[in-house]
């Protein structure tokens, strides 16, 4: 990938890439996401934090079409997002999964090439008769896939089955596969879960390089140091609701965020707790899990 520019990044706050307004997701009586609104600008790294069960992944699923929000809408580059994962991908949003979901018995290269599905056009007739379009696309996508593997640092593992890759490499392969869909916005669901500090630093570096390609990144994370190093803006979700949203400093120093993660001293509980939604919205939240 030659266009990796090291130039200082530029967040275009004038335009809006992703706009979620009043997104609510209910499962029966359980409100997993309640009236969440947020905006992501092009070239921005946006962090989504919150304790376990805060509804971060559910919100992600609403964005990427796996769930259809009960109410509210999601606009991407001004267009209303269709509630179908593959159309969301075509529109320019790609994601990774919290629990890695690679195609385990395909090689790393094949995994990335599957990601190119929406950007390639070979149809069954082209493939059956090996028409020029098929050959050209096949050569191009192989080349492009190798570039992407090189970009995430997996050149040597191209022909390895993805199930045999080390854990950290599997996470990076998932990112390469998502990048293969040529997204404008990359959604990463806990990209450093289970990584050691060194791997976390590499992941950080990788996300910066992705941002430098001109992509916006929306990242869910528990690792506070990681998130505040990385993100231009951060949103903290608690029990499905936006607790606070703003620059890293603002969120970091908000007492309510600290409270949500660590818990408050017992005697202060009744007074400082913000207006709580109905208690049934949490599914087993551990108080200090960051």
């Amino acid at each position: 990938m030659s266009q990796v520019a090291s130039a200082g990044h530029h967040v275009d706050t004038g335009t809006v890439l992703l706009e979620a307004s009043h997104v609510t997701m209910r499962f029966g009586g359980l409100t997993a996401v309640n009236d969440v609104s947020l905006v992501v600008h092009p070239g921005e790294i946006f962090g989504l934090i919150g304790p376990n069960g805060a509804g971060k992944t559910t919100f992600f699923n609403c964005l990427t079409g796996l769930y259809k929000p009960t109410s509210g809408e999601v606009r991407f580059a001004g267009e209303l997002l269709p509630p179908q994962p593959r159309l969301v991908v075509r529109a320019g949003m790609a994601r990774t999964f919290q629990n890695i979901r690679l195609f385990h018995n395909m090689t790393a290269l094949e995994n990335v090439m599957v990601g190119m599905y929406t950007r390639t056009k070979t149809n069954a007739i082209d493939a059956v008769f090996r028409l020029p379009r098929h050959r050209r696309e096949e050569v191009e996508s192989t080349e492009r896939a190798r570039e992407l593997l090189a970009f995430v640092g997996l050149t040597a593992s191209a022909d390895m089955l993805s199930r045999n890759l080390p854990y950290g490499d599997q996470r990076r392969l998932e990112i390469a596969r998502a990048l293969a869909t040529e997204p404008k916005l990359l959604l990463l669901d806990e990209p450093t879960a289970g990584m050691n500090p060194q791997e976390t630093r590499q992941a950080e570096d990788l996300i910066f390089r992705i941002r430098d390609l001109g992509l916006a990144v929306l990242v869910i994370e528990h690792d506070m140091r990681f998130i505040f190093n990385l993100c231009d803006r951060v949103c903290c979700l608690v029990r499905g609701e936006v607790l606070v949203q703003g620059s890293g400093d603002v969120v970091q120093n908000d007492p309510r965020v600290i409270e949500a993660y660590i818990g408050s001293p017992a005697e202060e509980l009744p007074s400082t707790k913000p207006a709580t939604p109905e208690p049934g919205t949490e599914d087993g939240e551990g108080p200090a899990d960051a």
Partner: peptide, 21 residues
């Protein structure tokens, strides 16, 4: 081909295949 890779991806993990477009 692209089609065959899509087929195998569906067999491996249909949800992930859908989420990859």
């Amino acid at each position: 081909s692209r089609i065959g890779r899509g087929w195998v991806a569906i067999r491996e993990d249909e949800l992930a295949a859908e989420a990859m477009g």
